[in-house]
Design a protein around this nucleic acid. Structure first.
Lengths: 246, 246
DNA sequence: CGTATGCTTGATCAACGTCAACTAAGGTGG
DNA sequence: CCACCTTAGTTGACGTTGATCAAGCATACG
């Protein structure tokens, strides 16, 4: 693989980057991987051209081959149930990994679609398996990654099972805010990449309810909303509404 | 480890059994593990005395060390959210694995509690990691296991997000029936090990709603219920109600 | 500039939750 | 072994939240 010279503060869509100097590596590779190990991972990661909004990373039912790290932009994952209804199962931001649902059945259980222009790193799973056998740290990392997705999904189950529309939306806003902060972006002002319909679908609510709750939050001056742009004005109140510990 | 002589059709609570001759191994170890490999796994697996009803396998927050295969009985997993409410995240029957939520944080994210007298096999995770490095088949198996739990949880998200009380309960009944069948038990008549309250909690419903839906199903002669004993009379209708493909 | 699409807001409705009373089942001590 | 008590489950009446239906508005795109 040919790599162009990479600079320290590169453009997020830049392809001439390696895991070693990727500013996301602390999220993507939270383990204390040795420099040596990262170099080996680098060799298997494939960085393609950015996806346009609406393009799919993979589709439900496709043969599973790779997992993907989001480098820039944002991805939504969704599945279609037997009766043809869509269920949005997750939103993924830079540093996060999609596609792990495919491992079990050798077929993706979800489709993954770009909500913005997005750059992704493809990591062929067979190579991960090989590397994991050689590098126990790497194996541990991927076991952890999978386990964390389980815990995330269970949190979402709790959200849907126990919480009101307000709590659900508050929870999503808090989560997105925190993930922006982790990326050293503003935790206060951000643009939601997804539609109201995606939000509703993800949270088990109708688009009308989502809209109403946004309006209510705005009226209570917890946030200000203008279309997809949100400014969080009272994160503590949102956390409280979301039933999260202080 | 000392193993007593094992017979072919052993008692489910019997401790003198090994993976090699366990009738659950096709569920627990669906991979084409070589006999040689199973023997190595056998050496890791610890089989303790059965748990009494109500006893915990582990508790949320405990340091993660092992995953557990259910040998007999049934286990429920639940977590307590920040506001103190319980959420039942899963029911586990023989051949199924609990505890994988602990890998990511080195702490269990759920508590696991026996709903009946239950026998479990403890599998220390560090040993799995070691073995997985030596046996790629084993590594693959555990990657798959984790991934399948993700897919399961996502199905449950869809259930909670999109389906009515009737669909949710129908879905649970179909699932339990199928899992009984897999164990070569009756898919038609079975005893529910969990309380109405656990069912409601798992399905995001109140106990009253669960009770009413049971009664409605009985009146429509889809099932007959007597306390915890259920007989499925029209599985096709239940599948339809659950929005499952024929 | 006009049309399509996404979003908001209002009015009404239904599903499920809440509250309450009652019944059945299981467990314990006399 | 039975009587009592506790806990689990059922059923009914009523209330609330969020879905549905419908109309209008804003934004984006050709």
């Amino acid at each position: 693989m040919i790599k162009t010279a990479s600079k320290q503060h590169s453009c997020p869509h830049d392809q001439g980057i390696s895991c070693s100097n990727c500013r996301l590596s602390s999220i993507c590779l939270p383990l204390a991987l040795e420099r040596e190990e990262i170099v080996q991972l680098d060799d298997i990661v494939q960085r393609g051209r950015p996806l346009q909004k609406g393009q799919h990373v993979y589709r439900e039912g496709d043969t599973f081959q790779s997992i993907y790290a989001v480098r820039s932009g944002s991805i939504k994952a969704y599945s279609v149930s037997d009766n043809g209804e869509e269920q949005v199962t997750g939103f993924y931001f830079p540093g996060e990994i999609v596609g792990m649902d495919g491992i079990g059945q050798n077929r993706y259980a979800n489709s993954a679609q770009a909500m913005d222009v997005s750059a992704i790193c493809e990591i062929p799973f067979s190579r991960i398996e090989e590397l994991s056998v050689k590098l126990p740290t790497m194996q541990k990392h991927f076991f952890k990654l999978l386990s964390q997705e389980i815990v995330e999904d269970q949190r979402h189950i709790t959200l849907l099972s126990k919480n009101s529309a307000e709590a659900r939306l508050a929870s999503l806003l808090v989560s997105i805010s925190a993930r922006h902060a982790r990326l050293h972006l503003s935790a206060v002002s951000f643009r939601l990449p997804m539609s109201r319909s995606d939000i509703g679908n993800f949270l088990g609510l109708t688009i009308e309810t989502v809209s109403r709750v946004f309006s209510r939050f705005a009226k209570q001056e917890l946030i200000s909303v203008s279309n997809k742009d949100v400014t969080v004005m009272d994160i503590a109140a949102l956390r409280k509404l979301a039933n999260l510990a202080e």
